[in-house]
Amino acid sequence: MTRDSGAAEDTALAWARARSSGPLRVSPGTPARRLPAGMLKLTEPGDAGVSWLVPQVPTDADARVLAEIGLPGPLLEQPNDTARMLAAVLRCCWADPLGPVWPGVRAGSGTLLAVFGEVTGPRDDAAHRRSAVAALRRLDQAAWVRWDEPAGTVRLGPRAALWSGGDLTMLRQLWRSIPAPPAAPSAVPPVRGPRR
């Protein structure tokens, strides 16, 4: 072994952590280390300076081949609503569909609710909010979306950076098919879940 064992150990640890809990959050305070091999560092814009370590895996060798192999993936409740919510977030936060999808911009939850309403079709207001909150929580937990619940803002999460070029082509079509969000932030109060 020519490489120093410390770096190898760090890499192994980082991969194991990413396997067990998804993208790794690196707080701004931590001392800069060498990037673990095969991982991508994504730094969020803004003063917080939070960055993420995302394992970079070839597109034909990650979770999306599960269907091909015929194995069940992690189970998602309300998969359709959750996918619609992700589409709505994408529509609001991906400002320029010709550019890269990450990091995107922040979107207010009022705007997001309006787009989500367009995508899901007419529904009872309370049910609409409930499904929106539930979908946002699920997406936030899986790091697809970063939901700042107290501030009522949403942005794309680090996992969104893993979409490949081919995926992005389809997502651009999807982006164009969804009506644009209302220009001015509407007066709808921020989405709040029930207290836990």
Binding site: A18, R19, S20, S21, G22, P55, D62, A63, R64, L66, I69, L71, G73, P74, L75, L76, P79, T82, A83, L86, Q141, A142, A143, W144, R159, W163, D167, M170, L171, L174
Partner: peptide, 11 residues
């Protein structure tokens, strides 16, 4: 068979 934590969203 794969990393457990999150579902994958196919476009």
């Amino acid at each position: 068979a794969f990393d457990a934590p999150a579902p994958w969203f196919d476009p």
